[in-house]
């Protein structure tokens, strides 16, 4: 169903001052897939993300993007590999002194040789694709939290990255904004075939968007289980069951 592996993580270990955070991490993410990295607070989701996008170096192990090793590699090569990435950070990271249009134009103007008209056109498409047409000239402070997340996605996608990383996209959003964001992620994935890696602990989002889930747990300092949301829901592992119990309880409550 999906293409070739685009992210390969082999035997990754990460520790901070002898305190081990992640141990024996192995997985592959395939082209065009939506993968959620899930788990409770403090299980190492964001740490794992920081290793994959090359902001931190793993203590040992390898990360391969496409067919290139991210570590060990020169800064120059790393930044070349990173051009394949678009990252939406948890707080959005939109530049407050720039309008939404300027925020999206910034990477296009800085890193490409597109003509002015092409930049304008692409910026319009990006903003429209996240449902922010008519908000071009607004500053981040003038729009709502949900809109900021959308604008941040548009900016992360400005250079049409091969892989889009979203760090807790639905945090701080109401259920309606959150589910409309889920829809947007699905739609963009279907239309643009961008591989998406999403850090989340929001169960409803996981069920709405994920093709596969990498479930991390603090107690094992690593991966508890990998599989489709449905597979994980049927898992016999007690810790996996605990994680998904919440949603089952919610379903029972509705009945």
């Amino acid at each position: 169903m999906f293409g070739k592996p685009i992210i390969t993580v082999n035997n990754l270990y990460k520790s901070y001052e002898n305190v081990s955070v992640l141990e024996n991490i192995n997985f592959k993410i395939y082209e065009g897939e939506i993968v959620c990295i899930a788990g409770g607070s403090g299980c190492g989701k964001s740490t794992l993300l920081r290793q994959i996008i090359g902001l931190e170096e793993p203590t040992s192990g390898e990360i391969i993007i496409g067919d290139q090793y991210l570590f060990p590699n020169s800064e120059q090569m790393k930044s070349k590999i990173r051009q394949k990435f678009g990252v939406m950070f948890q707080l959005g990271g939109l530049i407050a002194s720039m309008t939404l249009r300027e925020n999206i134009e910034l990477p296009l103007k800085s890193f490409t040789k597109l003509s002015i008209n092409q930049i304008k056109e692409i910026t319009k498409i990006k903003l429209t694709s996240v449902g922010l047409n008519n908000f071009e000239d607004y500053f981040p402070a003038e729009i709502s939290g949900g809109m900021k997340k959308r604008a941040a996605i548009a900016r992360a996608m400005a250079l049409d990255p091969e892989i889009l990383f979203l760090d807790e996209p639905s945090s701080g959003l109401d259920p309606i904004s959150s589910s409309s964001l889920d829809e947007l992620i699905r739609e963009l994935n279907a239309a643009l075939h961008t591989t998406m890696v999403i850090i989340t602990h929001d169960l409803s989002s996981i069920f709405a968007i994920a093709d596969r889930v990498i479930l991390l747990d603090k107690s094992v300092r690593g991966i508890l289980e990998i599989g489709s949301p449905k597979e994980l829901l049927l898992s016999k592992n007690k810790l996996v069951k605990n994680f998904f119990n919440r949603i089952r309880n919610e379903v029972n409550y509705e009945k």
Binding site: K124, I125, L127, T128, S129, N133, N134, F135, E136, D137, Y138
Partner: peptide, 10 residues
């Protein structure tokens, strides 16, 4: 996508 209809609301 209705992007060509973008009008500046400001």
């Amino acid at each position: 996508l209705p992007y060509s209809e973008i009008k500046n609301t400001k």
